[in-house]
């Protein structure tokens, strides 16, 4: 299987300060894991920055301009909320993360590759249409979905989110848009506090909350409940918000997943994509804050993208 890895070294220049768990070392850890011999078949390239046109398919122009206008001097930081902080390199990193998602869609939708994984930061699934939140600035997944619709003429796109936190931003961006399905598992109670099964959008949103302490069995059961709805939607492209913070070692949550659980969900998603849309999967890195668990889980994810 041809799988493209998109990443850019300037993703390391987004620095929210010492001790912040969403740190440049996360990206280093993932890339180091994907550097091993078994990933030699990955195609690798660098993305370009997303354009205003691509971003404003999701976010209002004044929001995008306001974020991009925040350019602290080298060494300075500006906190947008208690969690979400911008340094000198943050705006560029955020544009590259969204740009990678767009590029991944282009490559997958034109058949250049079957699947793509974007090893990028900042993540995106907490960013609402007009609010940065939870380490996120732009909704990378929805920017990718709307790009697939606007440029490649797709009608139905599914976004599947297994990050341990609820993708409130993704949900905010798509909950009135029946052309995009959003299915998500998350620990509840946990930040950001949304993600109840009763949140269904216009029939296009599917949430599976999991209690603290839940392990791989509960996670798999949750997705066995979600995936039939995704398949019934018959997506023409599957976008994955791949967060690895449901791992038992993660410091920001209390689920108990292990690497085989991430391989399992990846395999299920690939099999669904094979049945619905010629196997087309675009996966975007979201959270995961234990460096060793993040590296080994992302490796399990990409290994499965390559093999299934």
């Amino acid at each position: 299987m041809t799988v493209l890895l998109l990443t850019h070294r300037d993703g390391l220049q987004h620095d929210m300060g010492e001790g912040h768990p969403e740190c440049p070392d996360r990206l280093r850890a993932v890339l180091q894991a994907l550097d091993s011999e078994e990933f030699a078949d990955l195609l690798r390239d660098e993305p370009e920055e997303a354009t205003l046109e691509q971003l404003t398919r999701v976010h209002p122009a004044d929001y995008v301009e306001a974020i991009l206008a925040i350019r602290p001097r080298e060494g300075d930081r500006i906190a947008l909320d208690g969690d979400t902080i911008m340094s000198a390199g943050s705006a560029r990193a955020a544009l590259l993360a969204a740009g990678a998602a767009v590029r991944a869609v282009d490559e997958v939708c034109t058949g250049q590759v079957l699947r793509a994984f974007c090893a990028t930061r900042p993540p995106g699934h907490h960013a609402e249409r007009r609010r940065p939140m939870g380490f996120c600035f732009f909704s990378n997944a929805v920017v990718a979905a709307r790009h697939a619709q606007a440029v490649h003429g797709l009608e139905r796109v599914a976004i599947l989110d297994f990050d341990v936190h609820h993708g409130n931003g993704t949900q905010d961006c798509v909950q009135n848009d029946p052309s995009i399905l959003f299915a998500s598992s998350q620990q509840m109670p946990l930040y950001p506090g949304t993600g109840e099964a009763s949140e269904t959008g216009v029939g296009n949103v599917f949430n599976a909350p999991l209690p603290p302490g839940a392990g791989g069995d509960a996670f798999r059961e949750a997705w066995e409940g979600l995936l039939p709805a995704v398949e019934a939607f018959a997506p023409q492209l599957v976008i994955v918000s791949a967060g690895f913070d449901a791992h038992a070692r993660d410091p920001l949550a209390q689920l108990r997943l292990a690497e085989p659980d991430f391989a399992w969900i990846t395999q299920q998603i690939c099999a669904l994509a094979d049945r619905c849309c010629g196997g087309r999967v675009v996966s975007l890195l979201e959270g995961g804050y234990d460096l060793a668990a993040l590296a080994s889980s992302a490796a399990a994810h990409v290994r499965t993208l390559l093999r299934s």
């Binding site: 768990p21 208690g82 969690d83 939870g134 930040y191 506090g193 410091p251 920001l252 209390q254």
Partner: peptide, 16 residues
């Protein structure tokens, strides 16, 4: 300790 009293809890507040 970073989150100000009265504000909704942030993502870092769930840190172990």
């Amino acid at each position: 300790g970073r989150t100000l009293a009265g504000k909704p809890p942030g993502m870092l507040d769930s840190a172990m």
